[in-house]
């Protein structure tokens, strides 16, 4: 399989704004270490999940890969080409191949534009509106997301559509340029239960039929279980565990992943109840804990090494990487 995206040791630190006097008298600039050295790759047609609690840096990772936010350090490769330092002009043609779907379809569509205008905008931005038949492109994008017949939707406004339909318009907008890679940032968290499967199944079909690669950012592990091929679990800007979704669902290795899995409620009243194995909440990413970032909450803390030395992400089983001292010898 062909590799579409690769990131190496990606970092994004946001400077913390302080008050005037504090800035004047303190020497040290503080940073929110939103993404702090993550590496992974995504293959063609693959659904790669990025999961974690809020504040773990998953959305920032997605935005940095598309260079919507500039990385602080690290390298981003797209189809083998290093795009980390490309200028805006150099990047623009590549943007045809990479798109994003945002979380909230009520916010991400301009209420004054018709569906036709919304979906054709990427074509205009890319200057393709003179080369291709815009109407035909919009029509086929709408068909791809099963808003049929397209004529019925093209001339409507977003407020005339339901949440699920709006999110499908957002997907159609991402698809109209026939991209190879889409970042889907919590695409169904604002949708009702009975319709969220529409959007997720659509993503599955696109990955399988059109070989579109997805970076699926989510906090819902139960959904990720059924959508993703591979998944990376993030905590405070670092990847804790990475591997095939099946392997991680069946046998999570990192204590954090294990805790997450046990905390997910199961829709079955007779099943084993969830357990709360870790206390407290995610610490601040401004001063992340030393050593292993999870050591302050870890139920399997094994001593000084966790506090002092940062564990590396190592391959423990085939295609299954874990960053934990329990496994690194």
């Amino acid at each position: 399989m062909k590799e579409i995206v690769k990131v190496v040791n990606l970092k994004k630190w946001f400077p913390v704004r302080l008050g005037f006097w504090t800035t004047l008298f303190s020497r040290k600039q503080l940073f929110v270490r939103a993404v702090d050295g993550v590496s992974f790759n995504i293959q063609q047609g693959e659904l790669f999940g990025l999961a974690g609690e809020s504040g773990s840096g998953k959305t920032t990772t997605g935005r940095v890969i598309l260079r919507l936010t500039e990385p602080t350090d690290g390298r981003i490769f797209f189809e083998g080409k290093d795009i980390t330092n490309l200028s805006y002009e150099e990047l623009k043609p590549l943007r045809r191949k990479m798109q994003i779907i945002f979380q909230d379809p009520y916010e991400s569509l301009n209420p004054r534009m018709t569906i036709m205008d919304i979906i054709s905008e990427p074509l205009r931005v890319q200057g393709l509106d003179k080369e291709v038949d815009v109407e035909e492109a919009v029509r086929s994008a709408l068909e791809d997301v099963q808003l049929v017949p397209p004529e019925e939707f093209m001339y409507r406004f977003p407020h005339e559509l339901s949440g699920g339909q709006r999110q499908r318009v957002a997907v159609a907008r991402a698809l109209v340029l026939r991209p190879k890679f889409i970042v889907a940032d919590e695409p169904v968290s604002m949708l009702d239960v009975s319709i969220r499967a529409e959007v997720l199944n659509l993503m599955l079909d696109l990955a399988q039929k059109h070989k579109v690669a997805f970076l699926y950012i989510t906090h819902d592990l139960a959904l990720a279980r059924h959508i993703c091929d591979r998944i990376a679990i993030m905590y405070l800007g670092k990847i804790m565990e990475l591997g095939q979704m099946d392997d991680i669902a069946k046998e999570p290795l990192h204590p954090y992943t294990q805790a997450l899995m046990r905390a997910v409620p199961v829709p079955d009243p007779t099943a084993r109840r969830t357990e709360v194995v870790i206390k407290g909440e995610i610490p601040s990413p401004i001063n992340p804990p030393s050593g292993c970032r999870f050591h302050t909450r870890c139920p399997q803390y094994i001593g000084d090494i966790c506090r002092k030395k940062e564990p590396k992400l190592v391959e423990v089983q085939k295609d299954h990487y874990v960053a934990c001292h329990l496994y690194s010898k």
Binding site: R196, A197, N201, L223, H226, A249, V266, A271
Partner: peptide, 20 residues
């Protein structure tokens, strides 16, 4: 109920109720 997949079950296609 079918729209709620369990994290412990095998990977499966998700179910939705058509319409709104």
């Amino acid at each position: 109920i079918s729209a709620f997949p369990s994290i412990h079950s095998e990977r499966q296609r998700m179910y939705s109720i058509p319409g709104s």
